[in-house]
């Protein structure tokens, strides 16, 4: 599937945001020692990478809004619905396990990566149910 302008713009945004994210994580790791107290300074530095992850979400929303092809937009939204459903089910299921048992605590940091993995599951669902996985995003 050839890339349309919205997909090309999305890829550009994601590359720039990924570089910003990696740099922000490296800076935060260098400035904040392990086990540092939560002070306004450490919180402020630690939240900088979160700006990049929020940027990822903005880029995805912009991508869907910019897609001029309604069929491709439907495929992408289906993928996001599958990812959201899967993430909510896993997070709430594991959260209940944490409430009632001594299973390991999973940091909330992993919610977004799990959602991104859910996009791959969504592609698979599209492939199985419609016969078309949709663009890789």
């Amino acid at each position: 599937m050839s890339m349309n302008p919205a997909q090309r713009r999305y890829i550009r945004h994601m590359i720039a945001l990924s570089i910003a994210y990696i740099l922000a994580v490296m800076v935060a790791s260098a400035l904040i020692p392990d086990g540092a107290a939560a002070t306004p300074l450490t919180i402020g530095i630690a939240l900088v990478p979160a700006l990049a992850t929020s940027g990822f979400i903005w880029a995805m929303a912009r991508y869907v809004a910019d897609l001029g092809d309604e069929y491709v937009r439907m495929l992408e939204i289906r993928k996001m619905l599958v990812a959201t459903g899967m993430t909510l089910a896993l997070a709430s299921g594991w959260g209940i396990l944490e409430l009632f048992t001594d299973v390991p605590r999973v940091p909330l940091f992993f919610v977004f990566p799990v959602w991104c993995l859910g996009l791959a599951v969504g592609s698979l669902v599209n492939r199985v149910t419609i016969g078309d996985a949709g663009p890789c995003a």
């Binding site: 491709v72 419609i130 016969g131 078309d132």
Partner: peptide, 15 residues
């Protein structure tokens, strides 16, 4: 002004 995949999906009654 749509993708070829859109045309294919419409033709094959998938969309």
């Amino acid at each position: 002004q749509v993708s070829r995949q859109s045309v294919n999906a419409i033709e094959t009654d998938k969309y």
